[in-house]
């Protein structure tokens, strides 16, 4: 018998009132699997993640999420001058486990410190969040999800703006966390990273394709439908496509 999927979507559509921003979304993610979400800017990656998170209600179809979701949102400037330390951000993951009148205490502090240790940031626990590097900030947000005991990790363009070594370190951490039985969804612009995931879902308003990367990414028509034909393949990059209009994020 196959294990119950952590996330299952069928004919899912969601949006912000008016015409749905995404539709026809159909996938199942099991424990331990990683899913890469590919699409152009405005293609609906963030919208799909918000639907999984329960922030947006489906306007059609069904969406079942069988575990707590931890989220690593897209980088936002306003968060950078917020007066919190790395430890305080990780401790945000404990709030839902506390009764409303209690403040986080020693036990919560220790849980947060352990999670920071787990993502390799113990020594930076007292640093201001906004003064960490991009890769370190993503790790802090992952630590927050670990404190939440999230069974599903949602990462929105976690590699954007990271240099190569940071991105590789982060990728290794994500693979490890999936290996412990979590389901992981990663919105990304990097086809190479998508290739190393268990599943790839291409979305451009509508879902274009979903399946194993070797099938989905081998099909040029799928990539064209996803990115609207704006793909430039760098010669000698062995399939590592560069997508000029999309690769910078906002």
């Amino acid at each position: 018998m196959r294990p119950e999927p952590l996330i299952e979507a069928a004919g899912l559509a969601a949006g912000y009132g008016g015409a749905p921003a995404i539709s026809g979304v159909e996938f199942a993610l099991a424990a331990g699997q990683t899913l890469a979400l590919l699409g152009p800017n405005g293609g609906g990656k963030t919208t799909l993640l918000r639907a999984v998170l329960g922030e947006l209600r489906p306007v059609a179809g069904t969406l079942c999420v069988g575990a707590a979701c931890g989220t690593v949102p897209q980088t936002e400037r306003s968060r950078l001058d917020y007066p919190v330390s790395a430890l305080e951000v990780a401790m945000m993951g404990t709030l839902s486990q506390l009764p409303w009148w209690r403040r986080p205490g020693r036990a919560e502090r220790e849980a947060a410190a352990r999670a920071l240790d787990r993502v390799g940031l113990r020594s930076l626990a007292d640093e201001t969040f906004g003064r960490l590097s991009g890769g370190q900030r993503q790790r802090v947000l992952i630590a927050r999800a670990l404190v939440q005991a999230a069974g599903v990790l949602l990462l929105d363009e976690p590699f954007s703006g990271l240099d190569r070594p940071s991105a590789e370190g982060l990728e290794a951490l994500i693979v490890e966390l999936a290996g412990e039985g979590r389901g992981v969804v990663i919105a990304t612009h990097d086809l190479e990273q998508a290739r190393s995931c268990d599943l790839v879902l291409c979305i451009n308003g509508r879902q274009v394709a979903c399946g194993r990367p070797e099938q989905v990414l081998a099909d040029v028509s799928v990539l064209e439908a996803t990115y609207g034909g704006a793909i430039v393949e760098i010669p000698g990059s062995e399939g590592r496509a560069i997508l000029p209009p999309h690769h910078h994020h906002h």
Binding site: G54, C69, G70, P73, R79, G93, S96, Q148
Partner: peptide, 9 residues
């Protein structure tokens, strides 16, 4: 800090 993640927290 994070309006989008607030609900899940």
């Amino acid at each position: 800090f994070d309006r989008g993640a607030a609900r899940s927290l």
